[in-house]
Design a protein around this nucleic acid. Sequence first.
DNA 1: TCTGGGGTCCTAGGACCC
DNA 2: TCTGGGGTCCTAGGACCC
Length: 407
Amino acid sequence: MTRRIAHLDMDAFYASVELLRYPQLKGLPVVIGGGRRSEDEALRQSFEGQALSRIPVSAFPLLKNYTGRGVITTATYAARQFGVGSALGLMKAAKLCPQAILLPVDFTEIRKYSRAFKDIILDIAPLMEDRGVDEVYIDFTDIPGGQREGGRVLARLIQKTIFEQTGLTCSVGVAPNKLLAKMASEFNKPNGISIVHEGELEAKIWPLACRKINGIGPKADEKLRSLGIETIAQMAAQELQWLIDHFGQKTGAWMYDAARGQDSRPIVLESEPVSMSRETSFERDLHAVRDKAELGELFTRLCTQVAADLQRKGYVGKTIGIKLKYDDFKSVTRDQTLDTYTADAQTIRQVAGQCLKRVPLTQRLRLLGVRVGSLVKASEYELNTPAGAAELAEPAIDLISKTPQLF
DNA sequence: TCTGGGGTCCTAGGACCC
DNA sequence: TCTGGGGTCCTAGGACCC
């Protein structure tokens, strides 16, 4: 049996979920904004109680109240024709497509549908790797029907079942490995299926731009271009040593394999989180001295949220760090590793405060973030260190008593 | 009216230990 | 006394992905 790996990608997931609720919007340009939870919440409330017919065809006037530093999460295909898509600033999107309808992200609904489509897949093909809210890899190799027509039969079954049970469409690529499956799933969007066999590398993969490889981002792409390499075929024509000389041992060797369609990464069924973080961009840039009170409040809230996330999910961590972004978009991080693990808000606040002291604070800030890394399961930590439970219950009081006003 | 939030992984230098 | 290597941990930054 040959290895058959599928990559499944929900089509315009966030927007499609909203379209289920507002079917009248089908075919219209709709964008889902903004990533900023507080503003999404404000926007959602402004819709509440209104009959759908009263949602303005142009909802962008709402942006007057939507002080919007948000970006688009997803756009419907009708909206994409105007050049509007993921990660585009909302204000720019309003210019490109003023008639577009703006809807806020409904995280509760998104989580519900995400769980639903993954459960459907697991029922049919249990070897599934979760790659985020709207994407998975599936190992078709030993699943009944997984080999028929190169995987097309099973892909069709999954696609059909998801649509019947949720009303959502998806695109599937099936290939000998994750690398090729990921590329294949993009060939025929939306609601498409693409099969790639070993022998089709030259015909289907080599003509593509290097940027289509998952892992080649804007920086690597630019560097490749500067070296005269635009397509995967051109990349495959380079010697291993040449790639290593320009991109380093690891990346160079990886590029060499990727260009040949080689990828032996397994399907990963379960994984443990490495870090958890909360960050927020302010509505306006803040100054560490002049806006000290406001910043202090936000800072404390971020620490409280991270602590709550850790506790809810049952993790403790020992590397505590901050991130901040200045008004010129330059960002810095500082972190500190403790010798005990914690999920306590006050401890996090105290250590993060120390980190903040090590960073220049003369320039205006636009973002502040708090991160806890080096995570382990809280249950295992308590098991392995009898003192652990006590530490968790009773944080280092002597440290906290000295907690400074802000930084 | 520029550019969200939550992640992972890699690199590279320094400390420290054997 | 000088030199050296390997290994691990910590920290900061950056690329990339969803």
